[in-house]
Amino acid sequence: MTTARLRVTFAGPHVSYQDGGRPGLLRFGVPESGPMDGLAHAAANLAVGNPADATAIEISPAGLTIECVDGGVTFAVAGGGFVVDHAGTRSGGWEVRTLRPGETLQVQRGHWGSWTYLALAGRIEAAEWLGHTATHTTSGFGGGLLESGGEIVIRDSRISPERERRFPCPVLARAQSTARVVLGPQLHRVQPEAVAALLTGAHTLSDSYDRMGVRLRGPALAIADALSIPSEPIVAGSIQVAGDGVATLLLRDHQTTGGYPKIATVLAADLDRVVQLRPRDRITFQAVGADRAIQIARLHAQRCAAYLGTISTPN
């Protein structure tokens, strides 16, 4: 059994351990957490020969720099277009390489994308909560945030030269500025002109963007009787409208209930790509019916499975 040890020389904010997520506990106030971009997370893991839902490191544009202290380990970076510097070579990620003792790996903000994933061949040691390492950032439960000066330990670490290669970012993992939504469920709580404003107005992501959600900028969305709504369950992708007419798109670490009306909900099939937008990027919303949403979900699942199938086999 081999163990690789890496030192974190720099970790920016919002860099966390995430396995595939902690599903099934919404009824206890626990959102799923897990990767913001689930497809990229799975691709990075599969590329190094890990299970798709293994613990990986989610990196924000604030970046991460690590140094290999002991052992060596094959790694993959996937998600967005980040800048990856390793052993004198610079790339745009979507690549499998091997980190050896004494070498440094630096992942920084690049041309596009808000989240990228560093998968390490083996088993990353991280605290579990309710059987998962996914970090719930509000509570800190789970694997937690990485901190400068800390250590990353990989048990049963592997060096797999046969896996080293590039695997270009597929179209289905690129940032997407059109988010398809099903309107509602509280359509009756908003003014009809609010729906028109959501679907035709110019919206951008604000700087207020973290794993819980992103506040949008755009025309105010008028709501009807906001204060009288009993608190009710929320899912990732909910667009809730506060009393001041400002919309927030709720994401992986969302609060599980809320009393603001939800004007629309982004399809799960589009969420991985929408989160790769950045503050100040434009976003438009396109309404689809429930039946069409199901078709989209099924097609998306097929495409993801087909793509991931090409990643998981070594050269």
């Binding site: 506990l25 206890f28 609060q255 599980t256």
Partner: peptide, 11 residues
């Protein structure tokens, strides 16, 4: 009546 908001908050 429900859990909500954040882990373990039982209303």
């Amino acid at each position: 009546r429900m859990y909500g908001f954040t882990p373990g908050y039982a209303y």
